[in-house]
Simulated assay, not measured.
Amino acid sequence: MTRRRRWPAALALLAAMVAPALVGTAAHASPETPRALKMHDELMVEVELHVQHREEVLTALLDAAERHAADVGQRSARLAALGYTGDLTKLEYVLPVQDYRLTAGFGESGPHWASVHTGLDFAAPLGTELVAVADGIVTEVAYAGPYGIRTVLTLQDGTEVWYNHQLQPLVFEGQAILIGEPIGLLGTTGNSIGPHLHLEVRPGGAAPVDPRAWLTERGLTP
Rank of each mutant, 00 (worst) to 15 (best):
P169T: 04
L186N: 03
L155I: 07
A123E: 08
L153W: 14
P125T: 10
G127H: 09
I177T: 06
H117M: 10
D121R: 06
P125N: 05
V131R: 01
A123T: 10
G158D: 09
T139R: 11
L120R: 06
Y147M: 10
A176D: 03
L155Y: 15
Q166F: 10
W113T: 14
D157G: 09
V152M: 00
L170N: 05
P169N: 15
V171P: 01
I137L: 08
A134G: 09
V141P: 00
I137S: 01
L153Q: 09
Y163D: 04
L167W: 15
T159F: 11
H117F: 13
T151D: 02
R150I: 04
E173W: 12
A142S: 07
A124H: 13
V131S: 02
A144C: 04
T118R: 07
A176N: 01
L167C: 05
A123M: 04
Q156W: 14
A176T: 13
L120E: 08
V161H: 01
A134V: 09
N164I: 02
V161G: 02
Q175G: 02
E140R: 15
P125H: 06
V138S: 01
D121G: 04
T151C: 05
V141I: 08
L155T: 14
L170I: 05
T118P: 00
G127K: 14
V116G: 00
G180Q: 10
T151F: 13
I137P: 00
Y147K: 08
D157N: 12
G180R: 05
V152N: 03
V133N: 02
A124M: 11
D135E: 15
E181D: 10
L155M: 11
L153N: 13
L186Q: 06
D121P: 02
R150Q: 11
F172P: 00
V161T: 04
Q175V: 03
Y163I: 04
T151W: 15
A176M: 06
A176S: 13
A132P: 00
V133W: 10
E173S: 03
L120H: 08
L167D: 13
G158I: 07
A124Y: 13
V131T: 03
H117C: 01
D135L: 08
I149Q: 10
P169W: 09
L130A: 02
I137A: 07
G184S: 10
T118F: 01
T159N: 02
L170T: 04
A144L: 12
